[in-house]
Design a protein around this nucleic acid. Structure first.
Lengths: 212, 212
DNA sequence: CGGCTGGGTAATGTCGACAGTCGACAAAAG
DNA sequence: CTTTTGTCGACTGTCGACATTACCCAGCCG
C-alpha cells in the first residue's frame, strides 16, 4: 500500500483499495471508468492507468471490450492461489533457514502466542496484524527479488479478497497449532520439513477459505 | 504469443515482441510512446495500454515520469528469476508425477535425444523448439491456474531476454544430461527427487546465463 | 410460445492536444 | 575551476471528445 500519492493514478489505486477493504466493492462488481472518474473529479485516462496496475496485482479482472470486475474466485482458484503462495514462501523460508537466530525463533513463538491470545478474545484485527508480522519476519531473510514480487502480489491479492471473512476463519487452537509447527520445524533446522510445513500451512488455509 | 489481434493494443504488443525477438530493441533501450505511435500510425493511447501489459509480463521496466525501458537484468536478477521458475515448475511436475504414463516418459526421452542431435548440429532454433515441447509436456498435467500464470510469465520473460544468447549456451552433453536426469526421476516416481531435479535444472541454467 | 433479429444504450477503445516533470546542458556566481 | 542555478527539449501524464463494441430488450417470425 503506497503512502506517497504523486500522480492521479496512484490516488486512484489507493481509492480502490479503500473501496475494496471497506467492502463497498464486492466480488463481481464492475469498476466503471466514467463513474470512478466522476467520483474523483478527474478524467478516465488515469483511471485506466490505475486499472492496469490493479489487474497486474490480481485485484481486478479485465474482460476486453467489457470492463473491469472485482474477481469472483472459485474454490479451485482459491486453493490454487494459496497453494502457489505456499510453494513460493515455503521455498523462501527453507532457503534461508540457517539465518534464523534462536532469538528470532523465540520472537516467532512469541508472536504465535499473541495471535492465540487475540484469537481467544475475538480481536480479529489484531490477529491479522500480528499474523502479518509473523509472516514478514519469516520471509524477511530472503532477497530473491523475483520471488518476492510474486509473494507480495499474492499476499496482497488474498488479503484483499478475504479480509471480509477473517472473522469466520480463525479458531485459536488451529492458529496456535499451525504456526507452532512452522516455528518447531525452524528450530529443528530441517530444511525439507520446513518447506513442507509452510507449504501445508497455506494449503490448509486455502482449503478452509474455499469451503465457506 | 497471441495470434488474434483484435485491438490495436494487441497489435502493439505483438509488434514489440517482434522488435525484441529480432534484436532491434536491446536491453536498456527506451520505448518511446510517440515514436511507436508514429511507427504504427496510431495514437499514444493504445501504446500505453500495451506498455502496461508488457510491464505486467516483466518484458518492460517502467520508471515513473521517465519512460519504459527494456530491462537490463543483473546476474543476481537472472539467477533469481530462474530459481523462482525452478521452484514453481519443480512443484508443478512433482505434484502431477503420477499422471505420467510410461509412453509419455518415453516421449520425453525421445525429445531429449532430438535436442542432443540438434545441438550437435548447432541448429539452435530447433533445440529451443524441441526444448519448448519437452517443457510443455512436462507441466501439461498441472492445472493450477495461479501457478501457470506465473510460470508462463517467467517463461516468456526469460525467453525474450535471452533468445539472443542461446547459441552460446548449449553444449550437447549438458543438454542430454540435464534433461535425462529429469526423465529418470520421473521414471523412478520419486516426488522429492523430481522436484529437486527440476529445480536444480533451472538454477543451473540461470547460473550459466548469468555468467556471460 | 420460443428463438431470432435489430436497434438503442452504456460501457470500453481511440484520438489529438495540452500540461507537468525529468535530465542535460549552459551560463553565472563563488 | 567548481558549484549552483536557469533554461530548454523531450518525454510522460492528463484531458475531453469521438468511435466502436457488447449487452439488453422489444418486436417479429416460425
Amino acid at each position: 500500500m503506497p503512502i506517497i500519492k504523486k500522480t492521479y493514478k496512484d490516488q486512484v489505486v489507493g481509492h480502490v483499495y479503500q473501496l475494496l477493504l471497506t467492502g463497498e466493492l464486492a466480488p463481481g462488481d464492475q469498476l466503471k471508468e466514467s463513474l470512478l472518474a466522476a467520483e474523483m473529479g478527474i478524467s478516465r485516462a488515469p483511471i485506466r492507468e490505475a486499472m492496469k496496475e490493479l489487474i497486474m496485482n490480481g485485484l481486478v479482472d479485465y474482460r476486453p471490450q467489457v470492463g473491469n470486475f472485482i474477481p469472483v474466485l472459485s474454490p479451485k482458484q482459491i486453493i490454487d492461489s494459496y497453494t502457489t503462495r505456499g510453494v513460493l514462501e515455503g521455498y523462501a523460508v527453507m532457503s534461508t533457514f540457517e539465518q534464523f537466530a534462536d532469538e528470532e525463533i523465540g520472537k516467532l513463538e512469541n508472536l504465535t502466542a499473541q495471535m492465540e491470545s487475540y484469537a481467544k478474545k475475538k480481536n480479529h484485527k489484531m490477529v491479522v496484524e500480528v499474523g502479518g508480522e509473523f509472516h514478514d519476519l519469516l520471509i524477511s531473510k530472503n532477497d530473491n527479488v523475483q520471488l518476492l514480487e510474486y509473494t507480495d502480489r499474492l499476499s496482497l491479492k488474498l488479503h484483499i479478497q478475504f479480509c471480509r471473512h477473517w472473522s469466520k476463519l480463525y479458531s485459536p487452537v488451529e492458529i496456535g497449532q499451525r504456526h507452532r509447527a512452522i516455528v518447531e520445524s525452524l528450530r529443528l533446522k530441517d530444511p525439507t520439513r520446513i518447506e513442507m510445513v509452510v507449504r501445508e500451512h497455506y494449503v490448509e488455509t486455502g482449503t478452509k477459505i474455499a469451503e465457506l
